[in-house]
């Protein structure tokens, strides 16, 4: 009984803080593994089975969605993990007809991937990946100066299309008036009152403050690769 209370308290703390949720998942890893093993009918291997990762994200969902009136937490989490694993299995069923490249062909010892011609330039790809990684690292550092982490941004990200459009509109306005970006960098604060002049709703922007900071930072200096990835963001606004 007491233990049950403890879990619930931890869960409620983890709801607000992704870091705590991560810790909680670490503590309950044996439970998650057991649930995955029940589904797979074999013990999952860490770092190999996608199912384990999915079980972990399902545990995250359980933390977010749990409420006291939903009964015992672990039962709820177990149910959610099982249903997410079933969802995943159904999604994968579509590819069940395909042959894995890793499988051996008639000739023993060589896999199908070895027989295919190499389409991509591997070294170039690893280079760009390294470059992107460095850029992201830089962005993270800069965001830390604002007291914003990427996890915060992900949690703060607008879900509705309309809200997303409003944020983009504000971004577009900020790009046209360099003062805003300058002010952002100088004061380390989001100049909402100036952004509002772009026509976006003030409340919407305030609610997605962290997200706006990340988005504006991406469009300040550098971050060519991330911006390249986000090409569609600006395309959507330009066509309007």
């Amino acid at each position: 009984m007491n233990e049950e209370q403890l879990i619930i308290q931890q869960v409620y703390k983890a709801k607000e803080n992704m870091q705590k949720a991560d810790e909680l998942i670490n503590d309950y890893m044996p439970f998650i593994k057991a649930e995955t093993a029940k589904f797979l009918r074999r013990p999952p291997i860490e770092g190999h089975d996608d199912e384990l990762s999915i079980a972990m994200i399902a545990f995250h969902e359980a933390i977010c969605g749990y409420a006291r009136n939903r009964g015992a937490f672990l039962k709820y989490a177990s149910m959610l993990i099982r249903s997410r694993l079933i969802d995943y299995a159904r999604k994968e069923m579509r590819h069940s007809g395909a042959i894995s490249l890793e499988n051996g062909s008639e000739k023993e010892g060589t896999s199908l991937s070895d027989t295919l011609a190499d389409q991509k330039n591997h070294s170039e790809e690893t280079d760009t990946r390294e470059a992107t990684k460095a850029e992201i690292q830089e962005l993270r550092k800069q965001m830390e100066g604002f007291g914003v982490s990427l996890t915060d941004v992900a949690e703060n990200c607008p879900k509705q299309k309309r809200t997303l459009d409003a944020c983009r509109k504000a971004l577009q306005y900020a790009k046209e008036t360099p003062d805003i970006l300058e002010e952002l960098l100088r004061t380390k604060r989001l100049p909402i009152s100036k952004l509002v002049q772009g026509g976006a709703d003030r409340k919407t922007l305030e609610r997605h403050r962290k997200y706006m900071v990340a988005l504006l930072l991406v469009f300040t200096n550098g971050y060519e690769l991330i911006r390249g990835h986000l090409k569609q963001v600006m395309k959507g606004v330009a066509t309007k």
């Binding site: 972990m56 994200i57 941004v153 990200c157 607008p158 997303l164 990340a214 569609q232 963001v233």
Partner: peptide
Amino acid sequence: KEGRFLIAANLR
């Protein structure tokens, strides 16, 4: 690509 930050399962 639309500028959303999302949380997903970490599949290695």
